[in-house]
């Protein structure tokens, strides 16, 4: 006959452990809440020697920022056209007005620099780094490996001149000072003329001067899928995106495409930025 022997109580079973642990935490929280404030740093502790995060300067958007941004965009277009010229992508006939465009952009930058100084700001006579990395570098890379670099150089010049025209007009609507709006639109009208000239030279004989948006019709592309530039794309001056397709057809049957835009917070050249 066997005798049942009750299990020895160790005094530290799982249930006891949970009970005592909870009691300890609760008591700790109670004592912490009641404790006196002895001061000291309350920030989370840091481990290692890495520098703490650097906060960006606060960027105020004002008329000087608009002017500095447009000055940087003028230089960006000069950079683009200069590389396209160096690559020999323009015909002799095109070269004559591209040279004139560059002279106009340099003059525009000087005029903007004067407006900036008069408004109490620091001129920014260098290209826009954001536009360089997001638009100009990819476009130049696509043109360099294109099946028709001359076509793409002309399309790129048209798209960027149109971007300038749209940008000046857009900023007129958000700038504060009438004198600055006047200065912006004086340059914007010149940009609109350059854009119209390129469109008239390249596509008017085939597609006409007037774009389909004038009548609310859908935007068209040519037989190969390239956007068509019109000397007069709409009844009123526009501020929308400018589609650009350049480069050779890739393995997936597509070319590099992008949409140029008017300046926004990520494109602005704030007053804390320098060349």
């Amino acid at each position: 006959m066997t005798t049942h022997t009750p299990a020895q109580n160790s005094g530290f079973d799982r249930r006891t452990l949970l009970r005592r642990g909870g009691l300890t935490l609760g008591l700790g929280a109670f004592l912490s809440a009641c404790a006196a404030d002895f001061g000291g740093d309350t920030a989370p502790g840091r481990v290692g020697l890495v520098e703490s995060e650097t906060m960006l300067p606060e960027g105020t958007v004002n008329d000087v920022v608009y002017l500095r941004t447009m000055q940087s965009l003028e230089h960006s277009v000069v950079e683009l056209l200069s590389v396209l010229i160096a690559g020999g992508h323009f015909t002799a006939a095109q070269q004559s007005y591209i040279d004139r465009f560059i002279a106009d952009h340099v003059a525009a930058s000087e005029a903007l620099g004067q407006h900036i100084s008069e408004a109490g700001g620091e001129p920014y006579a260098c290209e826009n780094t954001w536009v360089r990395s997001r638009f100009i570098d990819p476009v130049l890379a696509a043109v360099a490996s294109s099946d028709d670099a001359s076509r793409d150089a002309r399309s790129s010049a048209h798209a960027f001149e149109t971007m300038l025209a749209h940008s000046y007009q857009h900023l007129v609507g958000i700038a504060s000072a009438p004198a600055i709006r006047h200065g912006l639109m004086s340059l914007g009208a010149s940009a609109a003329r350059r854009s119209a000239l390129l469109a008239a030279q390249s596509s008017a004989s085939e597609f006409g001067y007037f774009g389909p948006e004038i009548n609310g019709e859908a935007v068209e592309t040519d037989a190969e899928g390239f956007p068509i530039g019109y000397a007069l794309p709409a009844v009123f001056g526009q501020v929308g995106q400018i589609p650009l397709v350049v480069g050779a057809v890739d393995d997936e049957g597509a070319r590099y495409s992008t949409s140029l835009q008017t300046p926004a917070e990520n494109t602005f050249v704030y007053e804390y930025m320098s060349c």
Partner: peptide, 22 residues
């Protein structure tokens, strides 16, 4: 545009000037 204090008015006139330049 240089004589208008209202930005909305300047914006509309700018869109006309751009078109006439074209």
């Amino acid at each position: 545009i240089g004589k208008l204090s209202d930005a909305g008015a300047a914006e509309v006139i700018a869109s006309i000037a751009a078109a006439e330049s074209r």
